[in-house]
Design a protein around this nucleic acid. Structure first.
Lengths: 336, 336
DNA sequence: CTGAAAGCGCTTACAG
DNA sequence: CTGAAAGCGCTTACAG
C-alpha cells in the first residue's frame, strides 16, 4: 500500500500538502493540487483511516448496540440510524446484545476500545442501571434508544401512555369488561410504561382492579402458564393486549391451542407485531411504532451532542399509530 | 486517558516492559510484573487498540456484510459468525447492504478502510461478479456466505439440489402433475441452483416441461402478476414451491386473496420460511437451512485463511432439512 | 501558498 | 530479564 510519503515524493511536495489536498483543509495552488491528485491516482494511494483517527483522536465512527436485531421494530431502528449516520458521513459499527446484559457489556467495551465517537444503545432487559450510570461517567457520548432511563441521557423512544389508553378504550367501548395485559419483563421501560398506563386507563374506563388482569413474568414458560391460568378463571378475560412481538407469539399460541377464535371468542391486540403480518388470519390489531424515525432521532441526538457536548440531555418520544384490524373486533376508524 | 508512558513512569520500567506485560509477549520477572499491573490499575490504563492496530497492521477485527439482516435465516447466520468470531478473540463489524449493490460496495470500502483483517460477504442480488473479482484481487481475505460464486473464494452455503429434489418427489408422489416454482431473482446463486434442480427433478419425476412452471422475475409486482397468470391457466398448478421468504409471502398473499386453501385447493412448500412460523394456519412445509452453522463455517473458513493465506479456496455446503407440515399435504415422515 | 518537524500511542527488532 | 529507540501513517501548529 502506498503511503502519503510515496505520494509526496512522486508529486514533489511535502506530506503536509498531500494531507491538505486529501482533506481539503487548506488552500493549495491549483497546479500543485493537480500534481498531487495525479500522484494519488498513480500510486493508488488510499488514506489510512486508522492512522488518521489516531492522530486526530476521533474516528468518525459511531457504535450501535441493539438487544434484538431480528425483531422488525429493531431492524427498522437500525435502518434509521444507518441512514442518518451515512448522511453525517459517519460509519456505523453494529453490535447485538441478544438481550444479554453480559454481551451488552462486552459490546460496549469493544466499541469504546475501538474509539467510537459516540454510542447508541437499546439496552438489554436485564442491564443494570449501575452499568448505565458507569457508562454515563466516561466521556464518549451515549444516546439511549427505545428503552429509556431516568438518568440524564439523550434518549429517543416512543410514547406509550396514549396508545395503551386507546386500546383500552377501544375494548371498553365494545363492552369488554375483563382485559388481560401481557406485559412481560417490566424491567424494560417500554413494557413498564405500558403496564402503568394500562392500570390508569382501565380504571378510568370503569374497570375494577379485579377486571384488570396483568402478567409481568419474564420467562416465556411462566408467561404461558399464567395466560392459561387467566383463561381458566371462572370469568376469563374477553380481550388480550400483548405488549410486544414475543409476548404476542406466546399468547397467540395459547389461544390457538385452545381453539379460541379471534375476535369472536376473544379479542386481541398487540404492540409492535410481526413481519409479514398481513399473512395472519385474522389480521392483528397492532400498535405500530415509528421505528425508523426513532432510529433517525437517536442518531440526530448523538450528532447534536457530538457537535456540542454541553447541550442539555433531551428525551424525544415519538407517537405510535394503531392499525385496527379484525382481531380486536369492530374498528373505531375506517381503517380495517 | 493514561498512556503506556504514564504506566511505565509510575512502575519505573520501560514501555517495552509494559507492552509485554499487557500482551504477555515475553517473560517479565514476577515482581516487575506486579508493579506494572499495579500501575495499570492506579492509572486505569487501557490499551489503545487503534495505536496497536496501526503498529501491528492488523486489527483483530473482521467485517460481515449481509444483504438482509432482518430475514430470519440471515439473522441466524450473523449469530453464528458472531459467536465464532468471539471464540477466536476477534471483534466483528457488521454492515447491511439491504440487497443494494451500491450500499454493498460502500460497506466493503468502509470495512476495508477500517482495516478489517478479513471479510465475510453475503452478496446483494445485483452485485456484479466484476466487483467480486476486484475484491478477490486485493489482499484482505474474503469469504462468501450463502450466496456462492464460481470464482475461487472460500465459501460457506447450503446444498440446494437435494432439498429441491425431495420437494418435487414429495409432490409427485402425491400425484401432483403440475408444479409451480417461484424462483425469484436468479442472479442469486441459491435461487438459480434451486431453479436448475427443479427442472432436473421434475423431469426425472416424469413431468413434461409444460407441467413445470417457473417464475424467475425479480420485481415483486411482476412475480405476483405471473403467479396470478399461472393460476388463471386452464390447467393451473396444484402445488407451489417458493424459493425464499419474500417469495413465499407474495405467493401466500395471492393464494389468500383468491381464497385458495392449503393443502386442499393447492399444496405449498417454501424455502427458509418465516419467524414465528408456528403461528401460521396451516403450518408451512419448510426447507430449513442450518443457518447458524453456515455462519460458523464461514467464520471458520476465514479464520483458517487468516492463519495461512496459502490454503486452497474451499467451498462447504451444508445440508438443509425439510420440515413437512400440513400445507404440502400428507407427510412422508412421522413429522407433524 | 508551502514545508519541516513533532507527535498521536503503541510494538518490536536489537542490544546488553 | 530489560531498555533505548525506531517507526507504523497520518495531522497540524509553527514558521517563512
Amino acid at each position: 500500500m502506498a503511503t502519503m510519503v510515496d505520494v509526496a515524493k512522486l508529486a514533489g511536495v511535502s506530506t503536509s500538502t498531500v494531507s491538505h489536498v486529501v482533506n481539503g483543509t487548506r488552500h493549495v495552488e491549483e497546479e500543485t493540487r493537480q500534481r498531487v491528485l495525479k500522484a494519488i491516482e498513480e500510486t493508488s494511494y488510499r488514506q489510512d483511516v486508522l492512522a488518521r483517527a489516531m492522530r486526530r483522536s476521533r474516528t468518525d465512527t459511531i457504535g450501535l448496540i441493539v438487544s434484538d436485531a431480528g425483531e422488525p421494530a429493531f431492524a427498522e431502528m437500525v435502518r434509521g440510524v444507518e441512514q442518518t449516520a451515512a448522511r453525517h458521513g459517519v460509519t456505523l459499527l453494529l453490535a447485538n446484545s441478544a438481550e444479554d446484559p453480559e454481551r451488552e457489556a462486552r459490546a460496549v467495551r469493544t466499541l469504546l476500545e475501538r474509539r467510537v465517537d459516540g454510542l447508541i444503545l437499546a439496552r438489554a432487559a436485564g442491564s443494570t442501571s449501575e452499568a448505565l450510570a458507569a457508562l454515563g461517567q466516561q466521556d464518549t457520548p451515549v444516546v439511549l434508544m427505545d428503552r429509556m432511563s431516568d438518568l440524564p441521557f439523550d434518549q429517543a423512544g416512543i410514547e406509550n401512555a396514549q396508545p395503551t389508553n386507546d386500546l383500552v378504550q377501544h375494548f371498553a367501548s365494545q363492552g369488554h369488561r375483563r382485559l388481560l395485559l401481557v406485559a412481560g419483563d417490566i424491567r424494560v421501560s417500554t413494557l413498564r410504561e405500558r403496564l402503568e398506563s394500562f392500570g390508569e386507563a382501565a380504571t378510568a374506563a370503569g374497570l375494577s382492579s379485579l377486571e384488570q388482569l396483568t402478567i409481568t413474568a419474564a420467562d416465556p414458560k411462566v408467561i404461558e402458564a399464567e395466560i392459561e391460568a387467566a383463561l381458566d378463571r371462572r370469568e376469563p378475560p374477553t380481550a388480550v393486549i400483548a405488549c410486544g412481538t414475543v409476548l404476542a407469539a406466546i399468547a397467540l399460541r395459547t389461544l390457538q391451542r385452545r381453539g379460541l377464535r379471534m375476535p369472536d371468542d376473544i379479542a386481541f391486540a398487540t404492540f409492535d407485531g410481526f413481519a409479514y403480518s398481513d399473512l395472519f388470519e385474522p389480521r392483528l390489531t397492532t400498535v405500530r411504532q415509528p421505528a425508523f424515525d426513532v432510529g433517525v432521532t437517536a442518531a440526530e441526538l448523538l450528532a447534536r451532542r457530538l457537535a456540542d457536548k454541553s447541550v442539555e440531555p433531551t428525551t424525544v418520544r415519538l407517537m405510535p399509530t394503531i392499525e385496527y384490524r379484525r382481531s380486536s373486533g369492530e374498528s373505531p376508524e375506517p381503517n380495517a
